[in-house]
């Protein structure tokens, strides 16, 4: 293979690459978001049980999926950084955490606003909601821990341990609706079973999930570029950026 993957594991080569990728993912996020919202509001029918309130699903499920997925990706990058001692892997983990926390917050917020009219309560201490709240605390804990350690390499290691230990929470969130009796409804779609919703509703939800995914990649790449500049600020190549177009 002529392609050398390790070439891109250097912050110096990844910085401009990320800069070129950001517009691609940003445009994909915007286009998919516009299409998804159009389907969600103008194509998908009114739900026969929940009326129009169900339309929160188009942003609730994507945020919830991303909150769990980002955590797993973050833990994987952190583990890679821990094992291979590659700086960029750890920077990726650090860059993912705030976006993961944002997604978790949005999943909880939209869930609360959906729960009030449907269940009569903003919040319940049931397995799904409690484990999702723990996910938010894991993200915040990861960021706080890394911020409290001055040496970035030590911060990377400490964060990685926390991220890896916390990863057990993700399957707990995902399967909580199966393992316990929860107020939260079961999975909207799962492998080996036909989805329990109208196909246009499902389509809108999937397109929005893709939009959230592309958004998360764009936001993470933007953040990792800043992290690279911060950590490599004394490197000659960063100094040479002075005056060059951003």
């Amino acid at each position: 293979m002529a392609l050398n993957w390790f070439k891109y594991s250097s912050p110096q080569t990844f910085y401009p690459l990320a800069g070129r990728l950001i517009p691609v993912f940003a445009v994909l996020a915007a286009v998919l978001g516009a299409v998804g919202l159009y389907i969600g509001f103008f194509v998908a029918p009114t739900d026969f049980q929940q009326g129009e309130a169900y339309r929160i699903i188009f942003i609730h499920v994507p945020a919830a999926w991303m909150s769990m997925f980002i955590y797993l990706v973050m833990a994987a990058w952190a583990a890679l950084g821990l094992i291979l001692n590659t700086r960029l892997s750890s920077m990726m983990a650090t860059a993912l955490a705030p976006t993961g926390a944002v997604m978790t917050f949005l999943a909880l917020w939209t869930g609360s606003l959906w729960g009030k009219p449907m269940w009569g309560t903003w919040w319940a201490w049931d397995a799904r909601m409690t484990s999702e709240l723990i996910l938010l605390f894991l993200y915040i804990g990861f960021m706080a821990l890394q911020a409290s350690i001055d040496d970035p390499r030590r911060a990377d290691k400490a964060g990685a341990i926390l991220a890896l230990v916390g990863a057990v929470n993700v399957p707990i969130i995902y399967f909580s609706v199966k393992w316990w009796n929860t107020l939260h409804q079961g999975a909207s779609i799962s492998v080996g079973r036909s989805p329990s919703m109208a196909s246009t509703m499902l389509l809108g939800m999937l397109v929005m999930a893709l939009a959230y995914w592309m958004y998360s990649i764009a936001a993470t790449l933007m953040r990792v570029r800043s992290i690279i500049l911060e950590r490599e600020r004394n490197a000659q190549w960063v100094r040479d950026l002075a005056g060059a177009p951003a």
Partner: peptide, 12 residues
Amino acid sequence: MGGYATYVWGSY
């Protein structure tokens, strides 16, 4: 939003 404006728009 069929009477659910607060919840739907509050989310969006």
